[in-house]
Amino acid sequence: MAAERDRSVAPPTISEVAAEAGVGRASAARTLGGYGYVSPELRERVLSAAEKLGYRANALARSMSTGVSHTLGLIVADIGNPFFAGVTRGISDFSRQRGFDTIVLSTHEDLEEEKAAVGVLIDKRVDGMIIASAAVERDDVAHIQDAMTRGIPVVLVDRAVEHLALDSV
């Protein structure tokens, strides 16, 4: 059985789940990660130990190793506007049905806030961005081009940006 510790300090690790289940760390990782073969008996032991300890997968660590965060970034001009509230709800519902979470940022139609929001989403390693952009001039689009250069798919919503060859809705 795993040594007792103060769980308020840090969440349980895969190593602690493995110790609780009496298996190796690799077997616990395969079971909890859903890859490779694990016997039904071993799977049950690991899942029981994980539940007992309150283990939750580290989505950040998983996204770093797989390159996929299962997260979309949505940047809207004004979340208080009923139009954008509806767009947000539709995107969030649709993406959740497909296993994606949605991070929503509101920019108040301010280009500097939009640039900062794109930076946040790049840092969060989102798998795609949907942007209601305030960019109107050719010089205003470098932040969107930065996301695209990094391989992040970008779709515009509510308005097209003349200087970018992007899909828009």
Rank of each mutant, 00 (worst) to 15 (best):
Met1Trp: 09
Ala2Val: 15
Ala3Ile: 14
Arg5Glu: 15
Asp6Leu: 06
Asp6Tyr: 02
Asp6Thr: 07
Asp6Ser: 07
Arg7Val: 15
Ser8Ile: 06
Pro11Ile: 09
Pro11Glu: 14
Pro12Met: 00
Pro12Trp: 01
Thr13Lys: 12
Ile14Ala: 09
Ser15His: 13
Glu16Leu: 13
Ala19Glu: 15
Ala19Ile: 11
Glu20Gln: 15
Ala26Ser: 14
Ser27Cys: 03
Ser27Glu: 03
Ala28Gly: 07
Ala29Gln: 12
Arg30Ala: 03
Arg30Ser: 02
Arg30Trp: 04
Thr31Asp: 04
Thr31Gln: 03
Leu32Asp: 05
Leu32Lys: 07
Gly33Asn: 06
Gly34Pro: 00
Tyr35Gly: 09
Gly36Glu: 00
Glu41Thr: 13
Glu41Met: 01
Leu42Met: 14
Glu44Ala: 14
Glu44Thr: 02
Val46Ile: 09
Ala49Glu: 08
Glu51Gln: 15
Glu51Met: 08
Lys52Val: 09
Leu53Ser: 04
Gly54Glu: 05
Tyr55Gly: 07
Arg56Asn: 04
Ala57Pro: 08
Leu60Ala: 15
Ala61Val: 09
Ser63Trp: 10
Ser63Asn: 08
Met64Thr: 03
Ser65Gly: 03
Ser65Lys: 15
Ser65Thr: 15
Ser65His: 09
Thr66Ile: 01
Ser69Trp: 00
His70Tyr: 14
His70Phe: 10
Thr71Gly: 00
Thr71Pro: 00
Leu72Cys: 00
Leu72Asp: 01
Leu74Ser: 03
Ile75Met: 05
Ile75Gly: 03
Val76Pro: 04
Asp78Val: 01
Gly80Gln: 06
Pro82Lys: 04
Phe83Arg: 12
Ala85Lys: 13
Ala85Met: 14
Gly86Met: 08
Val87Tyr: 04
Gly90Leu: 09
Ile91Met: 06
Asp93Met: 07
Arg96Lys: 12
Arg98Cys: 00
Arg98Met: 07
Gly99Pro: 07
Gly99Glu: 12
Gly99Thr: 09
Gly99Ala: 08
Gly99Ile: 10
Phe100Lys: 03
Asp101Lys: 07
Thr102Tyr: 01
Thr102Ser: 00
Ile103Trp: 04
Val104Gln: 00
Leu105His: 08
His108Met: 13
His108Trp: 11
His108Ser: 14
Glu109Ala: 13
Asp110Ala: 10
Leu111Tyr: 10
Glu112Leu: 13
Glu113Thr: 10
Glu114Thr: 10
Lys115Ile: 12
Ala116His: 13
Ala117Ser: 14
Val118Tyr: 09
Gly119Tyr: 05
Gly119Ser: 06
Val120Lys: 08
Val120Glu: 02
Leu121Trp: 03
Ile122Asp: 00
Lys124Asn: 14
Arg125Asn: 06
Val126Pro: 04
Gly128Arg: 05
Met129Val: 10
Ser133Tyr: 01
Ala134Tyr: 01
Ala134Arg: 02
Ala134Ile: 01
Ala135Asn: 04
Ala135Asp: 04
Ala135Ser: 12
Val136Gly: 12
Arg138Asp: 14
Arg138His: 13
Ala142Phe: 12
His143Ala: 13
Gln145Ser: 11
Ala147Trp: 07
Ala147Gly: 06
Met148Pro: 08
Arg150Ile: 01
Gly151Ser: 01
Ile152Gly: 00
Ile152Ser: 02
Pro153His: 05
Pro153Val: 02
Pro153Phe: 02
Val154Phe: 04
Val157Gln: 06
Asp158Trp: 09
Arg159Leu: 12
Ala160Tyr: 04
Glu162Lys: 12
Ala165Asn: 13
Ala165Lys: 13
Ala165His: 13
Leu166Asp: 01
Val169Asn: 00
